[in-house]
């Protein structure tokens, strides 16, 4: 078995660079994109660690599936729950009284 030492050192260097990038990115004004950029960089670092340090690159497809299934289910949980929070204020209730249209309400 030959050693992958070189690959590990280059990966480590890449991870340190990405660490710098994520810290730098936090200091520039990205507005609501800040979270997305930070998560993207973190995702890249995680993929790097996963593929090289955790040998996902050389593992069978089944193990790669199990590695990604966790993230997929996390995405399901986050997406559906946050969709509830986003649409919570959109309930079709009446336009507030003060600017309610002057049409006569039934039954009066």
């Amino acid at each position: 078995m030959h050693s992958h030492r070189a690959a590990y050192f280059t990966t480590f260097a890449a991870l340190m660079v990405l660490l710098g990038v994520t810290v730098w990115a936090a200091h520039i004004h990205l507005g609501e994109w800040a979270a997305a950029v930070a998560l993207l960089i973190a995702a890249v670092k995680t993929v790097l660690i996963g593929v090289i340090f955790m040998h996902l690159g050389s593992e069978s497809a089944l193990i790669r599936l199990f590695a990604t299934a966790g993230f997929l289910w996390l995405a399901i949980m986050l997406a559906i729950t946050l969709s509830d929070y986003e649409t919570r204020s959109l309930t079709p209730d009446v336009v507030p009284v003060s600017s309610a249209p002057a049409e006569p309400t039934p039954g009066h």
Binding site: A26, I28, A34, A35, L39, A42, T46, I49, F53
Partner: peptide
Amino acid sequence: MGLYWHFVDCVWVFLFPLLYLVDRA
């Protein structure tokens, strides 16, 4: 053990920006 340790490292890779770098602009 390597898989476990790298995983714990990946958790911190996400924790660091989400906790420390919410908005340093």
